[in-house]
Design a binder for these strands. Structure first.
Lengths: 337, 337
DNA sequence: GCGGCATTTTGTAGCGCTACAATTTTTACG
DNA sequence: CGTAAAAATTGTAGCGCTACAAAATGCCGC
């Protein structure tokens, strides 16, 4: 109306200022800290913003303030659904403070973690949560506060560690099965830090109780297929097994396949317990007893630590373990006979 | 070495230029179009970049060039794994052209799509793929080229539509079951565009064949729980049903729960077919026959269309349907008796 | 060796925003 | 009503990069 600004250009802070009859600085101030502006001007600016459909340019803000109010989250694979709880936990803390989360996956198997981190750093994220196995090349945390979530190996120097207590979860599973009277117990494990801790916690408790434990697939993958293969081996070589602890729910699903193929009944003949308390475990069809690693709490804690380090330069807090909980459903039962 | 630059600051293009003995403009040129720079300078610049650990500032680049070489992808819920294939399909096309994908979910149930879009637009994405039910408020595509993927209702004006041929997929499922001799067939449906098209395609084919179709849950959700409830109703009110088509694999899992509870056997007494060909369908335990909607192809196509519109200002291409395929596994069998 | 042309390199002027000091307005109170 | 202090507002100078015109250099044949 005032003049012929090309229609395609998005409105800038100057357009808003002109419209509201104030200086650009004032508009900026309204955007950042409305309380410090008199009500009269604040309303005028807000009105101009809505009328023009103004949207601040993230790029310009980032450049000028060297803060983006965003946290980068690196996950290993979108298909590993545990990150969803982690993300929700983070967001529950971050949105209140006006932060947003930027997600990047590290292309499973391609070791592209550093690439994902690079991308996020290029976007000027204020902090980083790494929820994937840190690569050897990341010896030192990049220039921003960093938290490693859910993994314990290769934590870069200067990074905090907040992770599920996988030892404790393994011990819980063992405790549960022992309490039901099982003594010949199989464990479907896999390669990687989390699996190793679950295995260790599980084994420790069984050893203390003098139970007979058979571990399979310590060096293998953790997919449904791997669970199936490991369970087949287990059931064929130790047919007297009465309970199976799978390192995750997906592997437990694989175990069900092997059990079904052998005509065994769950839980009357064999008990199964998984890990992750995924939607799979919650389904009516499986009703899988599972350990819930409370990734939501890991996310919350990670966000809190990060915010503290970003906003007040708090020092690294070291390592924090989040206690898991056991969710008992229909796939575990007292020892038959 | 040359002077006392604070250690905390990340190196800029000026630092690189000084180090390499060239002008900042030349460094910028190397970054964008190395071919136009003489080999001598190019090598010098590259050396300086690696030595200083220089990483371009996305914010500054975006601001100065008003391009970010990034595409925003809005999904409805990270737990709906179909987006993973979509994403991979997009990336397979985009990475070659140097584009990256930024993901945002629209907080299921909260109708926060516009919020997600706002966030991405603030980041100056060059294009947008919306893989969620567009809200009514998004009548017109935002300032950037937009593609709606996988939904057919409420496509904003000016946006392209690239979607799975859900009608065709439904018809495929019907064709498969009819071919096996089934005539009393249940369908677990749900609210939403995709489910409606699967239902329509399925119903059309059954009607043509004169088969008896029972639809449940047209207005309900599409979770495992919903599938369970709908299947329960179906089996209790139409006990003569010999085949079930679920609108997605998760609902099929729910159906398994209901079938199991009633002591029926799959596939000898009742056939089940799902949709999505998810990891669930592929598992050994379920071996679920399922329609694969080829979301990877949708992603590829969406990326191509977007690139064409971004790079050469090509006009909107309208709508494109991607043909699904049927994957037959162990849960469908000829009509018993 | 030199004009004429193509190729390579560089200076200048922003992109849209914020930080911060400087300025103006308001408020408090003798 | 005056004046100091507090509160509100504004101007200036970048943030790190790119676009583009202008300048410098290289190359060619004669």
């Amino acid at each position: 109306m005032t003049h012929d600004r090309p229609k395609t250009r998005r409105p800038t802070i100057y357009d808003v200022a002109k419209q509201a009859g104030v200086s650009p600085s004032l508009v900026s101030l309204v955007l950042q800290n409305p309380v410090r502006v008199s009500e009269k001007r604040r309303d005028a600016v807000q009105a101009a913003i809505t009328e023009l459909g103004y949207r601040p340019s993230q790029a310009a803000t980032a450049l000028a303030s060297s803060r983006t109010k965003s946290i980068g989250l690196v996950i290993d694979d979108y298909r590993n659904l545990w990150f969803v709880d982690l993300l929700r936990g983070m967001e529950s803390v971050l949105t209140e403070e006006g932060y947003r989360v930027m997600l990047a996956d590290s292309r499973p198997g391609e070791n592209r973690i550093s690439e994902a981190v690079d991308g996020l750093l290029a976007m000027h994220v204020d902090g980083l949560v790494i929820a994937a196995e840190p690569s050897a090349s990341m010896l030192t945390a990049a220039g921003v506060p960093t938290v490693v979530a859910g993994w314990r190996n290769g934590v870069p120097a200067g990074a905090d560690l907040i992770t599920n207590d996988d030892d404790g979860g393994g011990a819980m599973a063992a405790h549960h099965l022992l309490g039901l009277g099982h003594t010949r117990i199989g464990h479907l494990s896999g390669f990687g830090g989390a699996a190793a801790h679950r295995r260790a916690g599980f084994a420790g408790r069984l050893r203390d109780a003098g139970a007979d434990m058979r571990v399979v697939g310590e060096a293998g993958g953790t997919s449904e297929e791997d669970g199936y293969a490991s369970a087949c081996w287990l059931l064929d070589h130790h047919p007297d097994t009465t309970a199976i602890f799978a390192a995750n729910d997906t592997m437990a699903l694989g175990a069900f396949g092997a059990i079904k193929a052998r005509g065994l009944a769950v839980p009357s003949q064999i008990s199964v317990i998984g890990y992750d308390n995924s939607t799979l475990a919650k389904s009516r069809y499986l009703e899988l007893t599972s350990v819930d690693n409370r990734s939501d709490l890991v996310g919350k804690e990670a966000a809190k630590v990060l915010l503290a380090r970003i906003e007040s330069g708090a020092p690294s807090s070291g390592r924090t373990l989040i206690a898991p909980t056991l969710v008992v459903r229909g796939t575990t039962a007292p020892l038959p006979g």
